[in-house]
Design a protein around this nucleic acid. Sequence first.
DNA 1: AATGATTTACTGCTAAAGCAGTAATATGAA
DNA 2: TTCATATTACTGCTTTAGCAGTAAATCATT
Lengths: 80, 80
Amino acid sequence: MEQPQELAQIIRMHRKAARLSRVQLAELAGVGKTVVFDIEMGKESVKLDTLRKILKVLNIKIIWKSPLMENLQNSENEKS
Amino acid sequence: MEQPQELAQIIRMHRKAARLSRVQLAELAGVGKTVVFDIEMGKESVKLDTLRKILKVLNIKIIWKSPLMENLQNSENEKS
DNA sequence: AATGATTTACTGCTAAAGCAGTAATATGAA
DNA sequence: TTCATATTACTGCTTTAGCAGTAAATCATT
């Protein structure tokens, strides 16, 4: 089974799983309903803090991943 | 050693590692220099697509993590 | 079918993101 | 020191995100 990569699909999927309507989600997140609609429609020009409010309700975390940071993690537990 | 969690610090750290000035990073990302300054100053009200342009230059990926998605991943490779 | 909730799709309006330009400092190397 | 680059910190200005309100359309349940 394919894992959704698009933010829009991820949001929608979590909202459905939480059995929330878009209006309900917007209210819980403390944002306008329009943004929730827009994001699920694939709009990428959302403000990060607004997005974070929505993600918080849905229990989604943002992980910043890069080769550089993975190298740091690897070097934390070296073997002799 | 502590891993930076703040977006601002992550950006700065990667920019330094790439030996780029803020203006250079802004130019490479195709955004104004002001945004790069603002982000590194901790501003959270950035547009997602603007942020993505910067992250792309620095080779940083965004991972959306949640218990729900981890369950899906686990159920992909079941053991008999 | 009928009722209610949800979704989609508009509308102006306001607040703010993003921009280039400028300038003052800070930093750093020759 | 001197010269160049980088950083910080301001400007207005334009674009647009986000908002509530409204209404039509779709969906679901009885």
